[in-house]
């Protein structure tokens, strides 16, 4: 087993699309992306829309097949889609995901408790009282009480649903958690709660995070290292504080300067060439 929790080499995704005249064309969403993440590490992938960051996340968790390149998680290859049920389960125990939209990422007809228990049943040998105890632990860990455990998603607020989604992801006891814009849709005060929660969970369990985000401040708060992506390619990478405080690439500088902070005056020079 390798020392890395996650290792990605030369990952590429080409979509077949129709161009403006209806002809077949190819669109490279992700081009030659490589990175690694050590156990209990935390990597931020930052970019704007069209940067390919979400496609990277979808390839990592197996929702989108890669066109080329390799991915290994805990030393095991997952470059090809899982064929057998046992493989699917195995991969699920290695890596889990929390999506952006807390309103659609939970089955609306299932209570929170039964959603989490379904995962426990599939991935752990626990039965009866032991499983119930584990469920209680998970719910405590994300700060949901008994009544919220018995509720359906509709009856919960956005922040509570996102906690439920985190609990469900943790139920498989993964070593790597992909957070795909997981706090972007939350209100500011709720976002702070969830960010604190995520920091606590990492400190307590030694899980590794890959945070996909457009929000530099959130990445800085949660991540040790960062990749800046643009148009499917990595523009800059390195230690999070270093990259954000002393960006080397022009694009990173522009991105950094576009974030409103105290005393910020919007600059027209921040202008990017827009596709027409």
């Amino acid at each position: 087993m390798s020392a890395e929790a996650l290792s990605v080499r030369a990952l590429t995704k080409v979509f077949r699309v129709a161009d403006a005249k209806g002809r077949r064309a190819e669109f490279t969403a992700v081009n030659d992306v490589s990175f690694a993440l050590e156990p209990a590490g935390s990597l931020g992938i930052v970019g704007e829309s069209g940067s390919g960051k979400t496609t990277v996340a979808r390839m990592l968790v197996g929702l989108e097949p890669a066109t080329s390149g390799t991915m290994t998680v805990l030393g095991q290859d997952r470059s090809q889609p899982a064929r057998k049920a046992a493989d699917r389960r195995e991969r699920a125990r290695q890596m889990q995901v929390v999506f952006q939209d807390p309103y659609t990422s939970l089955d609306p007809s299932q209570t929170i408790g039964s959603a989490v228990e379904e995962v426990l049943r599939a991935h752990s040998a626990l039965t009866g009282p032991a499983r119930t105890a584990r469920l209680t632990d998970l719910m405590d860990q994300v700060g949901l009480d008994t009544r919220q455990t018995a509720a359906r998603p509709r009856e919960l607020s956005g922040g509570q649903r996102q906690r439920a989604a985190i609990a469900r992801a943790l139920a498989a006891d993964p070593k790597v958690l992909i957070l795909d814009e997981a706090v972007s849709a939350l209100d500011v005060s709720i976002q702070a709660q969830v960010l604190n929660l995520l920091s606590d969970i990492r400190a307590a369990t030694g899980i590794a995070y890959v945070l996909i985000s457009h929000d530099l401040a959130v990445v800085r708060q949660l991540c040790d290292t960062v990749l800046v992506m643009r148009k499917g390619e990595i523009v800059e990478r390195g230690d999070c504080a270093n990259v954000l405080d002393h960006p080397e690439q022009e694009y990173t500088r522009v991105l950094r300067a576009s974030v409103p902070v105290a005393g910020w005056k919007p600059l027209t020079s921040a202008r990017q060439a827009e596709p027409s």
Partner: peptide, 14 residues
Amino acid sequence: VSPYVDALTVQGFG
């Protein structure tokens, strides 16, 4: 196409 189905897929369910 809704994310909860994606989430279940990632959970290893067929």
